[in-house]
Design a protein around this nucleic acid. Structure first.
Lengths: 342, 342
DNA sequence: CTGTTAGCGCGTTCAC
DNA sequence: GTGAACGCGCTAACAG
């Protein structure tokens, strides 16, 4: 059906080998024949088969982008798509194609990521949204498939990671609230199976400590990064600690949920209560009030991840890359106006 | 390096063929040997190479998802990712892998979509975000690669399309505004290289006509679906026709831009001016005021597109699929309170 | 039920 | 400069 290297060779009156050499840019083909070959190839609409090439070269020039569960995890959408774009753009710059894997719940999750990658013979993989306690995490790490993980800071000769500076980011957010006069700051964190949650927690803790504010475990709520968790989080923390005047949320979606809850119960943000988010997704700047949030450069994370991966593919050792975050002040945080008993 | 079918055969003391047959579920392998083969295969961590299989079968069980320009078109992100998820989920249900193509501006766009597909030997492709006047559109349609287009209603034996009922959707939005008493309704449309823009325009026109409201070309502005276009759109239309009391926007982002502009100039939505969007992206329901908008089921579009594609791959003829939209009433539209001179 | 043979389309020795 | 031969990992006839 499709035109192969043989068709081109025949039409050009040369051997297969010569066509191959011409296409792979070898110097030892006369300019004459080279031109004839290309002309004929274009005329016939010949495209070298990446499949056949992959078989013989044992390199497919394909990377796998592995995602926890594309379909379900709505919370991650805004976050992951930007990373995906970054990975893809950089990949195509480097001549790689990208194939998307996600172990959806539909496929009873019986095939591991490593198997998917092996079957497809990808040269390497980038993983994101994988939980720390994922069954197959170990599997892929021990499978000697070169890979880069997003937000899971492991390293090895064949794997590296890319992550934002979550601790710094969280710290700067809390410091911002402290500067505004808040001393009772609630923290609506993500679930504990995410490495980022632990790091952000540490940032929260340190900011408090350095300001001489005692840490209170009752001020911390664990959600799943979704809007509803922000809503429930504030509801819950208010019961536990009504003196709280500001909330730091580990995702913008949760921050939006927090704002919604506060508003629905008659409070104004930021006059009565301040809210700060994390991520810097588009939505954060389109709502009213716009969110004060810790912005992560997600696209760049994707780019870096891909760059790191090809580095590893070229023999460089894996490493951890950390990308800076910055605090973008919006309308959702303001001075603490409530008198507290401290 | 990686373990091949030969390793398994050797270890199991059978021929390569037998292993192949066992893995492909042929009945004519004794249960005994079959079990032995699987045991050894698992032990060795054997995964059949999709590459080698693709070469001989001339089917890769891979589809290409082709996107105009992933990196750039921020406007499409909210829209496209949901479709992508739908495509992917359905694809993996059907045993297909998905590889993502986008002709980024970085790659001087010298390779056509068709070439990308040919090179990778994808069985079929799904295209989205492609403009009607795209240079390579013809190319892929005439390349006998089975494909399904999103929102470009072409059909043929090897290609089909999936699209929302844009005309109906637009019509229902405008009818909604008319019911609220508006008679001067501005229309901020998308660019004319999108088929959807033409259909939505038709819906707008029909709704007016059926209500006996004369159509005025001055009431229509063409943007690019982005927030900024909504902003500029209202600014422009107000100059042309200050009597307008409601805007129908061909995307939620533009609707948000419209709301922003109105607010920034001291008007209240919907008290002073009503705004209706299109798409039903998440953001639409998180802002204040939440948008009244025409909701498209984007995930389902992806699912349908993939289902249609495998249909075509199995010999069924291509066809057009239209998915219904529905009007979701939010807070951005309200009764017309302004007296007009008509 | 199982093994043998022959390719799938291409890159790579090694000759000429 | 160019071609013939071999093999990448696998499936599909065709024997037994």
């Amino acid at each position: 059906m499709s035109v192969t290297i043989r068709d081109v060779a025949k039409a050009a009156g040369v051997s297969i080998t010569t066509v191959s050499r011409a296409f792979n840019g070898y110097a030892d083909v006369s300019l004459e024949t080279k031109r004839k070959i290309f002309a004929i190839a274009k005329e016939l609409g010949y495209q070298p088969s990446a499949v056949a090439r992959g078989l013989v070269m044992r390199k497919t020039h394909t990377i796998g982008l592995v995602v926890e569960d594309l379909g379900k995890s709505r919370s991650g959408h805004h976050f992951m798509f930007d990373i995906l774009c970054g990975v893809h753009d950089r990949a195509s710059e480097l001549g790689y194609d990208m194939i998307l894997f996600s172990v959806s719940s539909a496929q009873q999750k019986e095939t591991s990521y490593a198997d998917l990658c092996k079957a497809r013979q990808v040269d390497g993989a980038i993983l994101m949204g994988i939980k720390l306690d994922d069954v197959y995490l170990q599997d892929i790490l021990s499978s000697n498939i070169p890979c880069v993980m997003i937000d899971v800071p492991f390293v090895g000769s064949l794997f590296g990671s890319v992550s934002s500076e979550h601790m710094q980011g969280a710290k700067s957010a809390v410091e911002h609230l402290i500067r505004l006069g808040h001393r009772h700051i609630g923290f609506i964190n993500g679930h504990q199976q995410a490495a980022v949650s632990q790091e952000r927690f540490e940032g929260y803790r340190q900011a408090l400590e350095e300001a001489g504010i005692p840490f209170d475990a009752n001020y911390v709520f664990y959600g799943h990064f979704e809007q509803a968790d922000g809503y429930r989080g504030v509801m819950e923390l208010e019961k536990r600690a009504p003196e709280i005047t500001a909330y730091f949320c580990a995702s913008d979606l949760m921050a939006l949920g927090a704002v919604n809850y506060l508003r629905s119960t008659g409070r104004n943000v930021p006059e009565d209560v301040s809210v700060v988010g994390f991520d810097g997704i588009d939505i954060a700047f389109m709502t009213y009030p716009s969110l004060t949030t810790v912005v992560q450069n997600r696209y760049e994370m994707g780019v870096q991840a891909m760059s790191l991966l090809v580095g590893i593919l070229n023999g460089e050792p894996g490493r951890k890359i950390f990308l800076p975050t910055y605090l973008k002040e919006g309308q959702s945080s303001g001075p603490c106006l409530r008198m507290t008993s401290i």
